[in-house]
Design a protein around this nucleic acid. Sequence first.
DNA 1: ATAATCGTGCAGGTTACTTCA
DNA 2: CCTGAAGTAACCTGCACGATT
Length: 272
Amino acid sequence: MGFEDVCCTGLGLGLGRQDRPQSRLQSDHQEKKKKPCLKYDNSFPCLTLGPSEDTYQLAAKINDAGKGYGESTDLQRQASSLSAVSSFSNSSIKKERDLCGEVEVEVEVEIERVSSRASDEDEEGNSRKKLRLTKEQAVILEDSFKQHSTLNPRQKQVLAKQLNLRPRQVEVWFQNRRARTKLKQTEVDCELLRKRCETLTDENQRLQKELQELKALKLATPLYMQLPAATLTMCPSCERIGSGGDASSKTSFTIGAKPRFCNPFTHPSPAC
DNA sequence: ATAATCGTGCAGGTTACTTCA
DNA sequence: CCTGAAGTAACCTGCACGATT
């Protein structure tokens, strides 16, 4: 459901969503999860840095990792050219990477599985040191997120290698990114609901006023000219009042230049 | 066939750190 | 410099699910 769709849903708008991610490239068990998930489509407004054409193409290669398992030497070359220069001062990560060297990706996946739930403290012996991702890293991650908001292990691995980060860091980034996206969407939804509420309040006030006027008009009108109250209808869009019943009715008095017969809740006036 | 257990990924919430006005 | 707010990387917890026993 894109933003425009949300706009059109009117009161159907809700904070909870049942949509599932559009391009989820996950294993079967994730695909079958019953938890409601956000759908991240291209129309979703997100705060991103505009990636250059090069980085876009680079990210596209990472995306391809979700399709096949062949290692791209070209990818490796570009990965090294991007070697992350983060503000993270601890050198242990670099050591870890050096040790890994050219180890098969499958082995790394295994390592990742083992350490997936371990904190950095376990790995590095110190409390969490916060690194800042470089602009290049952020751009590539954002671009990858645009393609698919979740990663399969293979994609995670390739992306981590590409960015010179640990798979766990990539995983955490995607988790946080999804959370931010959802938060932003919630804010948008809240704003839409607030505006809708304002509109309905205004409409209500207007109708109340209209009702008062009709009552006053009824009192001021001679009895013989009065119509049964139930026959009066008003189109909410054009705000004209018409008499109910047959147009050829013998009633000699109608209010409004164009009598209309409509149910404002089910059949908005075609002329409006 | 069924229940118990394990491994994994995710959402939601929190903490700790960085940056900036 | 100091400070508070905002942003976010990293972490924790609980849940759902598939695979295995």
